[in-house]
Design a protein around this nucleic acid. Sequence first.
DNA 1: TCTGGGGTCCTAGGACCC
DNA 2: TCTGGGGTCCTAGGACCC
Length: 422
Amino acid sequence: MMIALVDVNNFYASCEKMFNPALKNKPVVVLSNNDGCVIARSDEARTLGIKMGTPAFTISQLVDDHNVQVFSSNYTLYGSMSNRVITILKSFVESVETYSIDEAFLNLDGLKYKDLFLLGIEIREKIMSHTGLPVSIGIAPTKALAKMANRFAKKNRKEIGVHAATEQQNIDALLKVTDVNDIWGIGPQYQKLLHNNGFNTAADFVNAPEEWVRVNMTVVAQRLLHELKGIQAVKWEDVPPPRKNICTSRSFGTQLTSYTELKQPVAAHAATCARKLRQEGSCATKVYVFIETNPFRAEDKQYHTAVTIPLTVPTNSTMEIIKFALRGLAMIYKPGYKYQKAGVMVLDIVSQTAIQLSLFDTRDRGKDQRLMKAIDDTNKYFGDNAVRYAVQSSDQKWHLRRMHLSPRYTTNIDEVMKVKAN
DNA sequence: TCTGGGGTCCTAGGACCC
DNA sequence: TCTGGGGTCCTAGGACCC
């Protein structure tokens, strides 16, 4: 097999730059939810030494000194740009696996291109001219090697942006110049373990005894070893498998202490989970609720806890999931703590069509479903949360901070770019 | 005095990804 | 004052069953 990995460089930061020419050559950072920490930065911001994951408040001096442009994350915009990129990729290749919002694997088998490197160049140019976004492309026989080639293209072939390692000699060269911590699937813990045992480059790792890898790093890393040897061990999934869990959680804008206050975010997260379930035509068999204090505040008493509640019949009804989530909250809530975050997860998801009715089920599910559909349709028309459930108050206390939001250029007619023509 | 073995299910925690 | 959110997979250990 031959696989290409295409990803957008500094995706969120590049999106912001794309829509605002004044940002050209300026340092740009994009912040996480709640404007908490840096999750994307332009090359200029990287050069200033701003690291991924850095808390926003620690870079305020740098921001002032170098006029760094700061943005709250605008997922509506990034999502729509992502769709455009995927559409372009599908114009080249039939089998595209969308791996994340900013990257995709392409199956290059059976293409009539003689030179896959040139195909990469062509793809890159088309994405640039159609979306204005810069991408890097790595081409190799397995996903792990394509990842590695991609990283090489980004770091060492910046002007070209494409690297192909399709022959064994190119692969060997690539392995030699890649440190183990730059291998897809090797994180900080495994990096430490490998370094301590004398494995420093990917070439060292490839020659590690397989049994040692399996015992010390589980079968996951053993599969990785195969991938680097050119043997496919990570499945090709151009149709995404159904999700097993859905999680909705947020940190609060301010800390909450009372049970009454906590009910609001928990109910809202429960409602979001239910909506996501309905969107993909599935139901959950368990509801999991958690609340936690802020672990960074050493001076505060810490408490984090969770509970799983099994449901007698799998459901995607907002009212039911709110009911069980609140029941869970009542079980785990303890007064006297400053809570910083709450979340709801729906677990063991099954397809809506495959639900067995329980003998003990007394709920009128047909009625529930009709109500849910009416609410979903209304919200689709008027915008999310036009219709809410009683417990989801409009009190903003727990809501996000988003001080630096850019317009929804591509998805909201009131916010599209205006060009003055006179 | 001798105190099984095999299987499943569940949970918590750890590792990783973007 | 201010430290994201959403996932997956694997393993170990406990509970429980026969």
